[in-house]
Write a protein that binds this DNA or RNA. Sequence first.
DNA 1: TAATATATGTCAGTATTATTGACTTTATAA
DNA 2: TTATAAAGTCAATAATACTGACATATATTA
Lengths: 167, 167
Amino acid sequence: MADHNRVVTSSMDAMLFLTDDQLLQGIELMYFAYKGFTSDPDLILQNYSYGRAHHRAVHFINRRKGLKVNDLLDILGITKQSLNRVLRQLINDGLVESRVGRQDKRERNLYLTEEGKSLERQLSDAQRKRMRSAYRAAGSDAVQGFRLVLEKIMDAETRNRITQDKE
Amino acid sequence: MADHNRVVTSSMDAMLFLTDDQLLQGIELMYFAYKGFTSDPDLILQNYSYGRAHHRAVHFINRRKGLKVNDLLDILGITKQSLNRVLRQLINDGLVESRVGRQDKRERNLYLTEEGKSLERQLSDAQRKRMRSAYRAAGSDAVQGFRLVLEKIMDAETRNRITQDKE
DNA sequence: TAATATATGTCAGTATTATTGACTTTATAA
DNA sequence: TTATAAAGTCAATAATACTGACATATATTA
């Protein structure tokens, strides 16, 4: 269903012609997909009286164990006052542990506690499930394209930061 | 760089094996790409003291000219009280026109005024530019995969609603 | 050592976007 | 005529962000 009309070669892609309507459709796809993508975690978070900001913090603390507060601020692109409220809640509620840095004692390294890992697992289970079924339905070639386009959509600095981390 | 290791065929895609890490990477890609994707319009909207909610309203009123208030509520998935504030501003500011329905006079059909179209163009220019350059950098095969995966990620009802509209 | 810079945390005030609940007006349908 | 539907409004609340000001502890530099 995918390969029978691959007429345009890689070398022609540079001059790919795209109508405004095709581009607008892509924009709407991003909007609707992102909306579905966040809907499962949003439901779970309600049981904890947490919001998306808590989810993001928990996600990145899990993915980059021991990261510093400043690292998290950079990743999220918000002010420390905004993060502080969320982080304080997570720490007070016993989901996140903040350890004084070993070399530089001004720094704080963030870790999920067992309780934090449990919430993270709940949230990412829901999201992984959606991603897995989408990936399987679309096929591995499509997934490769999906990843490639998303990488190109994001800001270059962001792309550099996260691709360098991943290899 | 893309096709030399395409070992998995379409028929095998149903059993595509995906590690948790691969799925989490996909989740982060969505997060970072969406962030970049909204950043250009956000800057423009600041000049008007508008937010993303205004952008979404303007976008969909442009895309579905004459749509009813209830249609817009369905698309956005918010309450009418939430939409009302935004819509009232846009109407008062002269960017949106609300016309009494021809058959059913309870209904209101929404249209962009010239001023509304001008804002829409500014916003979508920025977003189309980003999409176009991502599409071109990734190539047409990748774009096809991108679109397919996004369609599968969104809720089935949403997918049915928008794909039926588009063909 | 003294001055400066950095990392983190906090308080207060404000804005945007969303919610729920209650209610009104106008118009269509039973 | 009564009930339903579409739109609009008011009020109260919540989550997430912002700016600005300031405090504390630790490192770095002059």
